[in-house]
């Protein structure tokens, strides 16, 4: 006790100051309403770390639960987005197809304007790929003035190319016998040498036909890669329609004095979608209206 009294006596001034300071601080805390620091705030300061801890734990669990629900929501959104993406892809594909269609139709339109004959534009609606596209079915028939034996052309590589002829016409659809058909024979000319020959349908290979009756003197060196056009000698096909290009020459098996050639058709029969039917009448028309184009070299 005496030690405590001695301690107090020794530090009387300091202890008094501390007491005064505490009293003043308490007075400041409890008498000032507008004070920045109040009793509440001091209590809050002590409680704050605990509050933060509890709040953090609460937030953690809350966030976890929220994350799960958000994940579900995101999954749904992802699926929805995927569906939309698929739809957009389809739209793009449709758009591209439409674009191609427009391009093809525009080419056909250009072609129809450059032709001397009346043309009927039509779309290929049926084919038989197993038989090397020997026959195509188009969506126009006698109602549109299409008759049997009318030539059918297309537009490939900026040129009018022969596809075949109408073999059968019904009111709303027609059958096209293509150059690949073995029954097809067309009077043709090798443009380079002005040699008249005969194109015979061949269904061994797609878009490949045989050129027959080439005089023996026209060897491979001379006629290789030469263009073959319709000669206009036949009653059906006008003169000057491109058929294809010679890709190979060989000795004819049937006739000693003649060679045969393989002709690659300019039009790819497997790909043609739109065709033009030339409204010709082989009994009346003068096929000399159309001329051969100048020989096109490689």
């Amino acid at each position: 006790m005496s030690r405590f009294s001695g301690f107090v006596a020794k530090r009387r001034r300091g202890i008094t100051y501390i007491i005064i300071a505490i009293v003043c601080v308490l007075l400041m805390l409890f008498t000032n309403k507008g004070a920045v620091v109040t009793g509440k705030k001091i209590i809050f300061s002590f409680a704050y770390p605990f509050q933060v801890t509890f709040s953090s734990i609460g937030k953690f669990f809350g966030n976890t639960v929220n994350s799960i629900s958000r994940l579900k929501k995101m999954e749904q959104e992802f699926k929805q987005t995927q569906t939309e993406l698929e739809q957009y892809k389809k739209v793009i594909i449709d758009f591209n197809e439409l674009n191609n269609e427009i391009t093809s139709l525009r080419k056909l339109l250009d072609l129809s304007q450059s032709m001397d004959y009346e043309l009927v534009a039509c779309e290929v609606v049926g084919r038989d790929p197993a038989r090397m596209n020997e026959t195509l079915i188009i969506n126009k028939g006698t109602v549109k003035g299409i008759k049997e034996n009318m030539p059918v052309i297309s537009y490939a590589g900026g040129k009018k190319t022969l596809i075949g002829k109408i073999s059968e016409a019904t009111p709303f659809a027609s059958k096209v016998m293509t150059l690949n058909n073995p029954q097809m024979s067309i009077g043709a000319v090798i443009v380079k040498n002005r040699v008249n020959c005969l194109v015979k349908g061949d269904n061994d290979y797609n878009s490949v036909v045989t050129l027959q009756y080439i005089p023996k003197e026209y060897t491979e060196d001379e006629i290789m890669d030469a263009f073959v056009y319709t000669s206009g000698d036949s009653l059906i096909f006008p003169k000057g329609l491109e058929i294809g290009r010679i890709t190979g020459v060989r000795q004819s098996e049937r006739f000693e004095n003649f060679n045969e050639a393989t002709v690659r058709l300019t039009a790819e029969l497997a790909k043609v979608e739109y065709l033009l039917v030339l409204k010709t009448d082989y009994r009346k028309d003068d096929f000399k209206l159309m001329d051969f184009p100048e020989d096109t070299k490689k």
């Binding site: 001034r13 008094t16 100051y17 005064i20 300071a21 009293v23 003043c24 601080v25 308490l26 007075l27 400041m28 008498t31 000032n32 004070a35």
Partner: peptide
């Protein structure tokens, strides 16, 4: 110290400020 405390608190009371503010400063 006591004089300062008393004077300061008196100032605070008379001035309508935060009681104890000047008291602690002068103490």
């Amino acid at each position: 110290m006591i004089f300062g405390t008393a004077g300061g608190i008196l100032f605070d009371v008379m001035g309508g400020g935060i009681v104890g503010f000047n008291g602690l400063i002068y103490a």
